Simulated assay, not measured.
Amino acid sequence: MSVISVSNSKGGAGKTTLAMILADQLVENGLSVAVIDADPNGIITKWAAKRAEAGREMPYSVTSQPKEAAMIETIAQLANENDMVIIDLEGTASRMMSRALIRSHLVLVPFNQSPVDAELAAAAVSLIQEEEEAVERKIPFRLVRSRDSAAFATKTSKRITSAIEQAGLPMLPIGVVERAAYRDIYEFGLRLSELDPSQTSGVPKAIENAQGLAQAVVDSLKEDHRR
């Protein structure tokens, strides 16, 4: 089993989108997945409610807003029962975030490709490194580009990517491309594979991007395990 936390203090960084499409594709690949929705906005919980109201089966379990004191026990129980546990963390630094990070085999830090967002992503990395000092072990992480352009990289994006590489910070080789399908899975309470291409544009490309993301995350877990 593996525990993956998705963390960033910046709202709108694509944290929940990344958690949802990753869970979706890991299930598609035959893994059993549990999601912990620790974000106060409860977007994944609301998505699950839409599915329940429509009578659709859940592809993975969703545990909503666990109490801070129960976080470690919740993670341990779900990790014992599933191949993957994905935690959509709240945006602010807290004891709950701390407890999730120290139990994680990989932390994903999504960021929008702007100088301000890149700085906030760096702050999220600093929080991870503080936890590393506290528990005296490495907590593997990857930065993940959000709202990636499907066509080309902007000059700003190239500068930010270059700065990240020069700083020696690990980044997932594939980002979350801006796709209508990623918005529609929440609006309609659907999985990517359930979207109607006649109502949502670019579904095959969104699935291709999501598959690539999931594979990159699995590869990162394997790489860190070998170290």
Rank of each mutant, 00 (worst) to 15 (best):
Val27Cys: 15
Val35Cys: 09
Asn80Glu: 14
Gln77Cys: 09
Ala48Gln: 11
Lys67Glu: 13
Glu73Tyr: 01
Val107Thr: 15
Arg51Ala: 12
Asp88Lys: 03
Met20His: 12
Met71Lys: 04
Asn8Ser: 05
Met71Thr: 15
Ala93Leu: 02
His105Ser: 14
Ala76Glu: 14
Leu89Phe: 00
Val33Glu: 07
Ala49Phe: 06
Thr45Phe: 00
Glu68Leu: 09
Ala48Leu: 05
Ala23Trp: 11
Met58Trp: 10
Ser9Lys: 03
Ser104Arg: 03
Val107Leu: 05
Leu101Thr: 06
Ala54Ser: 15
Ile86Val: 13
Lys15Ser: 10
Ile87Cys: 00
Asp24Ile: 13
Trp47Lys: 05
Val107His: 12
Ser61Cys: 09
Gly12Ala: 13
Ala54Arg: 09
Met20Leu: 15
Phe111Gly: 13
Val3Gly: 11
Asn80Leu: 04
Ala93Pro: 01
Ala38Thr: 03
Asp24Met: 05
Gly42Val: 08
Gln65Ala: 15
Thr92Arg: 12
Glu90Gly: 15
Arg99Cys: 01
Gly14Gln: 10
Arg103Asp: 04
Asn80Gln: 13
Val109Pro: 02
Ile21Tyr: 07
Ile44Gln: 15
Pro40Gly: 10
Glu81Cys: 07
Thr17Asn: 14
Trp47Tyr: 07
Pro59Thr: 04
Val3Cys: 11
Ala38Tyr: 03
Arg95Cys: 02
Val109Lys: 04
Lys46Ser: 12
Ser64Gln: 03
Gly42Ala: 12
Lys46Ile: 11
